[in-house]
């Protein structure tokens, strides 16, 4: 591939409450590609996802994250999102009293309306997407994801089942149209039907304008989402990378096989 990948992670080191979790991790994801990042519990997968998205609790102690050629380390989560990064949460957070529709309209407007203010105090104009246009857009996307219309009026993730939460994440991804999307253990806690719906959603959105990083503990989701590259993470760094066949090998031989010093290939 000749062009520069949109997401470049270089020798990334991250600490949480003083303890180093990521220990020199490097990874590149370009638009049009699907990468799977697999690893045992505690290997630092979710730390990577949340560090990429800008969770304030994770402290970058070394290395760099470049998105579309620029370092995003100093950017807050909202700026990263507006720049085109997305993360589907492993545990989506409930916001009681905030309807899905109101939330999605606000999120879309944050993208459409806002000229960056740089704290100069200029107020963004209160316009954004017209209510009718928004309703049509939302209705269309929900139909694609086989979601009931009543979903829009429910409070965000409040009392949602595991499957509904994940579907809501995919809905957000569909509307926000990121360039790089990180799916943080999106498959955890899903029954097979929900897993299929979520995978179908990701497959429908994948294409030349989207790069996807699927983070998972299990090989199962990779029966539905076909990655171009598979990376195995152990103890805070990528231990081995390869093609789709690597996932199958892991499934049969287990993580110990990688842990016990398989030769590291370049990502």
């Amino acid at each position: 591939m000749s062009k520069t990948p949109e997401l470049i992670v270089n020798d990334l080191r991250v600490a949480v409450e003083g303890k180093e979790i990521l220990k020199g991790l490097s990874l590149q994801v370009a638009k049009g590609e699907i990468h799977a990042l697999m690893g045992p519990n505690g290997s630092g997968k979710s730390t990577l996802a949340n560090t990429l998205m800008g969770h304030p609790r994770y402290e970058v102690t070394g290395g760099e994250i470049l998105f579309k050629g620029l370092s995003i380390l100093e950017m807050e989560a909202d700026e990263r999102s507006r720049a085109g990064l997305f993360m589907a949460f492993q545990y989506p957070v409930a916001i009681p009293g905030l309807s899905v529709a109101n939330f999605l309209r606000s999120a879309l407007n944050a993208r459409l309306v806002r000229p960056e203010t740089n704290g100069s105090g200029t107020m963004p104009q209160k316009k954004g997407i017209a209510p009718r246009e928004f309703r049509a857009l939302l209705k269309g996307q929900m139909a694609l994801l086989k979601m009931d219309e009543s979903f829009a009026t429910r409070y965000l993730n409040d009392g949602f089942s595991g499957g509904e939460k994940k579907r809501a994440e995919i809905l957000q991804m569909a509307l926000l149209k990121p360039e790089i999307a990180i799916m943080d253990e999106t498959d955890s806690g899903l029954d097979i039907d929900a897993l299929r719906v979520v995978s179908d959603g990701v497959n429908a959105l994948a294409g030349p304008d989207l790069g996807v990083l699927v983070i998972t503990h299990y090989q199962r989701i990779l029966n539905y989402i076909k990655p171009h590259r598979v990376h195995v993470m152990v103890d805070g760094r990528i231990s081995v990378s390869g093609g789709p066949e690597l996932a199958l090998e892991l499934e049969t031989r287990g993580y110990d096989w990688v842990r016990n010093g398989k030769e590291v290939t370049a990502p």
Binding site: S81, I95, A110, L176
Partner: peptide, 14 residues
Amino acid sequence: EEQMYYLMSRGLQR
């Protein structure tokens, strides 16, 4: 703060 992070990760300013 987790609610804040979640909403901000969707592009909403603090």
